[in-house]
Write a protein that binds this DNA or RNA. Sequence first.
DNA 1: CCAAAAGTGTTTTACATACACCCATGG
DNA 2: CCATGGGTGTATGTAAAACACTTTTGG
Lengths: 230, 230
Amino acid sequence: MEINGDRKPETARQYHVSIDCAIFHFDTDGLKVLLVNNEKENWGLPSHWISEGETIESTSNQILKKYIRVEVFYIKQLEAFNSSSQYSPSDNITIGYYVLVKKDNLYLENHLQSLEVQWWKIDEALHLNYKHRTILDYSLKELRRCICQSAIGFNLLPEKFTLLQAMQLYEEILGIEINKSNFRRKFFKMGLVSGLDEKQEDVSHRAAKFYKFNLENYKKLEQGRFNLRF
Amino acid sequence: MEINGDRKPETARQYHVSIDCAIFHFDTDGLKVLLVNNEKENWGLPSHWISEGETIESTSNQILKKYIRVEVFYIKQLEAFNSSSQYSPSDNITIGYYVLVKKDNLYLENHLQSLEVQWWKIDEALHLNYKHRTILDYSLKELRRCICQSAIGFNLLPEKFTLLQAMQLYEEILGIEINKSNFRRKFFKMGLVSGLDEKQEDVSHRAAKFYKFNLENYKKLEQGRFNLRF
DNA sequence: CCAAAAGTGTTTTACATACACCCATGG
DNA sequence: CCATGGGTGTATGTAAAACACTTTTGG
């Protein structure tokens, strides 16, 4: 057994490695995850094996380029674990990622129709295999944990959003009800958002103001100690 | 390129995988990390290649069994990344872990003397190579983040501890000063600790009461929304 | 009696929570 | 004129922060 050495022992084992991504976006229907229909008529998370000449990062980028293409996303590694399947009995490692995408990229909608790919509501994305179910569950757990400790939630909102959209995002992800007036106060006081000179159009009620995420203020918010606590 | 398939393409690349652990404990001198002196006279994190017949988990367990041996620890995976070195130019993946160990395992002290192994104060554990430096920094970042959102801090304290010990742990890891009276009130009100019928002995000042972590109360503390916010 | 740490109590301030209410707009 | 969501204001309770103070013990 080799300790802390760079030299590999003869017994070192070799693995094939796959990258599996849980890609989320948020629209009026709520939180959704991107699933791919494979040749066996099963829906699963987008997944690639790492090929010769590629790395972990380049492979995850390939997946994103293929399905999302846009540059505006948030990506975070979840966990590496041993995996096996019918075709590749055991010598595998899977690295899971979760990815957040803004919904205002129309490209997505048009592009995806051509592929065997679809956005699924979270609670309808069942019948995944065990591996993908595990990654999806872990993603959601992380999303719930991180959304209050950082500003990653804004990666799921359009560039311009209303406060109701933001509030509903937090409500759905955290599974709680939030008081409208308190939500506003908190966001304003923290300086998380700044108002734009633009309003909704063609809505059958009072038009809401659009806001954008205020990155400059967020950076000042003594990073690391940031907490929204709903 | 294979999408979401179990079948591996011919081009799938193979990797050797190493497990590197940042193992921490906390004593009167503060937070310390376990370093191993390898054959090239460099200090680094304990590390093993995954061998034939082994898995990610079994290999990390081997490392812990070798250096820590005790069962009482907390272990969490950090990240998998491509790595290379002088001896193994590129086809590697490293999976980092961080581990918290209670300091009241005397075994450690006696055992480690026989190995080329030593506890280093965090701020003195320099001259690590880039890979290990990265893992150590990431570990500390995670530790700082998680110590307020969960009770993992107690994994660094002895079974029986005084409130000053607990407070100093939080102070060192967070790099802040905490008010003694407010710290007590918070821990008591949350029911995080319960007092024992035991006191310090042989101290040259008023003996402090010993406390233990109250797991039952912690479980009731609506998990996931737990926050200490110092 | 001094030092050093244990341990208690009080006051001020901030903020989360809850709730009531008015405003604008399309149907 | 009403339903729907936008947006404002206020009262209340809880908890964080700051601090002043007493207690215990060994030297």
